[in-house]
Simulated assay, not measured.
Amino acid sequence: MDEETTRSRKLQLRRQLRSRRAAAYAGEDGAARRAREAQQLLAHAAPLIAEVERAVGAASAAGAPAPLVAAYHPTPSEADVLPLAGRLARAGARVVFPAAAGRELEWISWDGDSTFVDSPGRGFGQEPTGERLGTRALEEAMLVLAPAVAVDRSCTRIGHGAGYYDRALRTLPEGARIIAVIHPQELLAPGALPCEAHDVRIPEVLTADGLVSLVTSALS
């Protein structure tokens, strides 16, 4: 598949997937479903929370900064990662959220309690009002909870089309975990999504059905 065909296919898939998501989580019933799934996400994230708590303890004992975790403010139809982000903040992690800064993502600290405000960036929902840490903050991250329109079991992620996360994820230190947070039906079969050379592979996904390693599941 040539580059132009791949991009056209991505655009078509993105529209289809967004339409399905919007229909599935529309109205009061959709909002109630999303709220239930947010609590299921939180429950399935218990191993992540424990890992962050251990890292917080180790950093405290060494007199080092607390571990940094990146999350995102979801749109009304995206998987709701905010309860998990709040839990990680209460565990002592430094939690950051993205904002647009030209072609890059800038990262803003969140204390786990402060309100969010509308972002001026096109396609961005809301952002916290905390300290702005610049575009290189993820160089210190231990965990990134990333949004996605869908992910397939070949570790291919399709995002919202601007490439922000593909650029940001390349700044991560070795050993940092990247976990896409999506709805259960948005984890697709291997090879379902077209992949370009600049796409960053996603090794794990978190849905209301569980935390899945796409690397180990592909080997089983």
Rank of each mutant, 00 (worst) to 15 (best):
V200P: 00
G130H: 05
V117W: 11
A218E: 14
S217Q: 15
Y164M: 05
T129V: 08
V200I: 13
P147V: 00
S220W: 07
T207S: 15
P190K: 05
G163N: 12
Y165K: 04
T129W: 00
E196I: 13
Q185C: 07
T115R: 15
A208V: 01
P190W: 03
R167P: 06
L143H: 02
A141V: 01
L169D: 00
R122M: 08
L187E: 09
V149Q: 10
G163D: 02
S220R: 15
D209H: 10
V205P: 01
A168Y: 00
D166W: 06
R177C: 12
T216N: 04
E127L: 15
L169C: 00
R136I: 02
L187P: 11
I178F: 08
T156R: 05
E127F: 04
V149A: 10
R153Q: 14
E186S: 14
L193Q: 13
G175Y: 12
V149H: 10
A208Y: 08
E140A: 09
E139A: 13
V200H: 02
L169Q: 05
A218F: 04
A150P: 02
R201C: 14
R201H: 12
P184Y: 12
G121I: 01
V205T: 11
A168G: 04
D166G: 09
E140D: 13
Q185N: 06
C195D: 11
L143W: 01
R153S: 05
L133P: 07
A208C: 06
E196V: 14
V117I: 12
Q126M: 15
L219R: 14
L188Y: 01
V215K: 05
V215Y: 07
L143N: 06
L188I: 07
L188N: 05
Q126S: 13
R132A: 13
C155A: 11
A192W: 00
L187H: 07
I179T: 08
P194S: 00
L214M: 08
D199W: 07
A150F: 10
V151K: 03
L219T: 13
A168I: 01
V205G: 01
G130M: 05
P120H: 07
D199Q: 03
R132M: 03
P128V: 13
E131F: 11
V215H: 05
G123D: 06
V149I: 11
P120M: 04
D152K: 05
L145C: 12
A180I: 09
D152A: 06
E186I: 05
G159F: 00
L138R: 04
A137T: 01
G123T: 07
L133W: 07
A162N: 07
H198T: 10
G163M: 06
A150G: 00
L211W: 11
E140Y: 13
R167A: 11
T156A: 08
R201P: 11
R157M: 08
P194V: 08
G163L: 02
A148V: 08
G121Q: 04
V144P: 10
T207L: 07
L187R: 12
V151N: 01
S154G: 14
E131S: 15
A176Q: 05
R136H: 12
G161V: 06
S119D: 15
I179E: 03
L214W: 08
T207Y: 11
G130P: 11
D113I: 13
A197E: 15
R157H: 04
R122W: 13
L219F: 07
L214V: 12
S217T: 12
R153G: 09
P120I: 06
L133H: 09
T171A: 11
G191D: 03
